[in-house]
Structures are given as C-alpha cells and as structure tokens.
Design a binder for these strands. Structure first.
Lengths: 252, 252
DNA sequence: AGCGGCCATAAGGACGTCGTCAAGACCGAT
DNA sequence: ATCGGTCTTGACGACGTCCTTATGGCCGCT
C-alpha cells in the first residue's frame, strides 16, 4: 500500500503537510494573550506530537478555528477583547471540539460557569505541564472515540452508492468498494460541501497541504479514480460533477 | 468484598430505574471507602437530580457497575482492596462511562496515570462541591451527546466466536481461546468501536500509551495474532478488517 | 483551421505499507 | 539459575498507493 508521504512536487520548495509516519498529527489551537505563557505552551506542545496554532485574542481564535478546525483548544479565560465564556459559547455553536480552559483567577463560580458553558476541563494556573498534557490527551482520546457517533450525518446515499463516513466504508450494488486514504480525504471534503462548489484550491490545500494550491492535475487524477469506483458511468458522472475552471461539486 | 449501603441488585429481578416525569434519572456510582465523605457525596448528589449507589471498595464497585451500569462513576483512588488505577482499567475494559477520580494524595504523576488509564477528570481533595458537580455535569453531558450507539456491550458474538468482555473470555467452536493481556486490550478497543474505523493512532495510544502513536508495526503483529486466534480463515479476515493506511475495523 | 487551455484517462516506476515469520529481550514463577 | 510465556524488534516478500508523464478530447478564441 501506498506511500502517503508528501513528495515534493515538480520544482520549488514546498512545505509538506505535517505528518509523522503517514499519521496526521493532532492540531491544537492555543488561545492566550500573555505572550510568555503562550510561547511556553506552544513549545511544549510542539515538543510532543502536536501541531500548534496560536491566537492572541478571542476574535482571532474564533476565526482561526472556523478556518482550520483544530482537534483541541487550549483557552485562557482572561482575554483582552472578549469574555472567555463567550469564546466557549461561540465555539460550541458549531463544534464539539474539546476545550480546555486555562485560567489564573479561578473562583469556583468561574469554573462552574466555564464548564456549564461547554468547556471540557478547567486547569488553574500555576499548573504542572505534565498534568495539562495528560488532560489534553484524555480530552482528545475521548473526542476521537466519541465524535464518530454523532457529529454529523454518518451515512450518505447517492444513487446506488452508500458512503459510511465513520466506518470508512463504501458499498455499491452490494459490494464493498475500497478507497485509498487520499481518495477518502478528497471525498470527505467534497461531501462536507455537498451541493455546493468546492474550489480546486480548497481541495488541494485540504488534501495535499497548504502549498499545493496549484497542482490541479492531482485533482484530475484522483477525481477520475473516485468516479471509476463510485459512478456507474464514469465518463458521464452524476455525483462528482466538474465545474470547469473552478472546481468540483458532489451531488446526491 | 461484601455488600454495600444501598441494596445492590442481588439474585432477583433488577429494579427498574427511578424516573422523574418519565425521564430516567442519571445514575451515579460513588466509590469511596471513607464513610463520612461517601455520605456527604451521596447526600449532595441525591439533593440534585441524581440517583446514587455507593461502593466501599474496588471489587464491589466493579461488580455493581457490571450488574447495573451507571451513567457516571465517582472514584476515590485510595481504596482498601485494590489500586484505583486497576478499577479504571477494569471499567474501561467494557464501558466508556465517565469516570471522575477524587483523590487526596494527588501528585502530578498520579493524575497523569489515572487520566492515561482512561479517567475523564481528576479532582483533588479538598474540593468545592459546586465544582465537582459542574465537572460531573460536563462529563455526563459529553457522554450523553456522544455515543448512543455502542456502549456497555458486554457480550459480543461474531460468527462462531463469542467474546465476553466482563469475564475476559473468548470461546470459539466450543473451545476457550487464550489471549494475552495486550491482545485483550487491543480487542477491547476494537470492539468498543465496532463497525467504525479505529485509527492506528487511536489503537496505539490506547493500548501502548500516548508516546507510541506511530509504531504501526505493533499493530500488524498483534492484529495478525488476533486473527490467527479468532478468524476461521486468518488470511481472509471477516471480523478484523484492515482499512489500508488508516486503521482497523471490527465487524460482527 | 490552427492554437492554447482545461480536462479525462491510462500506464509505469519509486517507495510505503501490510502480513508474516522468527529470533532476541524481558519478566515472573518455579 | 532455569523455564514458559509474553513483548519487542528485525527482516523479507507481496502488493498497493502515490506521483509523474504521456496521450487525446473538448471548447473557445484568433
């Protein structure tokens, strides 16, 4: 089975998508205005197997989370621009990503408020880095084994094809269809945006990494493979539609 | 390992859960040997909308949990009969019920060990009752909204194999099959996520620990061993399915 | 008609991954 | 110290996957 390693395409320096042994790393968003602590957290997390983004305030955090959904959020309550509780509520409006609150002032009331607003855990400064990391691991582990159950619609039916996103299983006419990791990734992005246009750039950046925005022939090759596996008449696709010059669209 | 304060279901019919307005109440199992604190917890929880059982030691706790699976467990680590960590592991062998650890001695190491063993949260004595209740609410809320599907399945039948997660026993074609501890752990995780993909990373971190996230070699070796013991045709597995590049899936 | 974009499809080589076997390290029990 | 079982580690073949290149079709523009 295949080299899922990002090989540098054609010419030029291109930053590969962060992975380790083909396994995608856990993405953590650190929301902390105090630069020193933020840096300490980032360094410690990166030293582990995490990939880290940092946001200095609530508005930035919400924007970054929406743009590139993380696998966990470390949130300081004492932010300059908005109340930490509102950041929690803002995130909880659309995602159940694990939120660990880190805070200095820690009255019991505050903890209760944060937890009831939807936070997963609450750590008081000063804290042991080991403990924080263990709590983070616990939260991510829980989420990994749980989110599959309910996050969104698990099973998509399109014509004679059924796609089970959680089992990572595709059936077509009573037979199982095998998809490679890259094919899955591509299909997932398309399904997330079903009935809407998904830009070439969007697809390339999501599946191959931020610096592959122009390698459009990857798309052609892989979309063709998907069509061959999913469409009954691959040369006249009914579900994986080409939008010339722009991208692709998945329709049921 | 004797009885407990509120009568556990002995020999006879299991009493239907108390309800309030048709809505089943949340069942909490308190595991605490110190009678005074146990009573305080029980009283406080009952004053809220919880229904409470109590166990004075680990063995009783495991037995009660098996007989009547609770919706949450409050666990003291300092038990008279066994290590609290082993209670966590015992529960995690077959259920993902939220476990909140309550402990007096709370070195950082202990917290890390408990969380990595599968605990959901760790509260240090002395604690604020409000905070404990908030953490309990958070854990239960997560659990409720997360998995409705696959939990608390004690006995699984897959083809000619039956797996009893409580008794830690596997029978196949009328004969007992011996599994090593590691094989068990791996199988447990796969069964808890049955019919869904279980990521390589997930399996490695759960079975071998947080730092083994990329040693995919272990998986190949142990999955092969499991197949040899469980599958009738190990080279064409029907239950332990490989999802190339991503992980494995257990199917009945 | 000819040309240049853009897209679809096929094929092949480099390299990963999976399954398997087996030897060595480790560990608790005798 | 020895032994049996278990875990870890290494090596290898078979095969799959990814990337790349080549070829041809379709369409609008000049």
């Amino acid at each position: 089975m295949g080299g899922s390693h990002p090989a540098p395409p054609m010419g030029g320096t291109i930053v590969p998508r962060t992975e380790k042994g083909g396994i995608p790393m856990t993405q953590v968003l650190v929301v902390e205005d105090e630069a020193q602590l933020a840096r300490a957290l980032v360094i410690n997390l990166k030293a582990r197997v995490y990939e880290v983004d940092a946001a200095p305030d609530g508005a930035t955090a919400l924007r970054m989370a929406a743009a590139a959904p993380p696998d966990a959020v470390l949130l300081d309550l004492g932010l300059p621009d908005m109340d930490g509780i509102d950041v929690i509520k803002g995130l909880r409006g659309w995602t159940r990503v694990p939120i660990l609150v880190v805070s200095a002032r820690s009255t019991s009331d505050q903890k209760v408020a944060a937890l009831d607003a939807g936070a997963d855990d609450f750590v008081t400064k000063p804290f042991s880095m080991d403990e924080l990391l263990a709590r983070l691991r616990a939260a991510v582990r829980r989420h990994d084994t749980a989110d599959a159950a309910t996050d969104d619609v698990a099973i998509v039916t399109a014509g004679d094809v059924t796609i089970d996103l959680h089992a990572k299983k595709v059936r077509r006419g009573g037979h199982d269809v095998r998809l490679t990791p890259t094919e899955w990734h591509l299909l997932e992005v398309l399904i997330r945006n079903q009935d809407r246009l998904t830009t070439q750039k969007q697809l390339l950046q999501e599946v191959w990494g931020p610096s592959y925005g122009t390698q459009t022939h990857y798309l052609r090759v892989y979309v063709a493979q998907l069509r061959r596996k999913l469409e009954s008449d691959p040369s006249h696709p009914r579900h994986l539609i080409t939008v010339p010059g722009m991208g692709y669209r998945f329709e049921k």
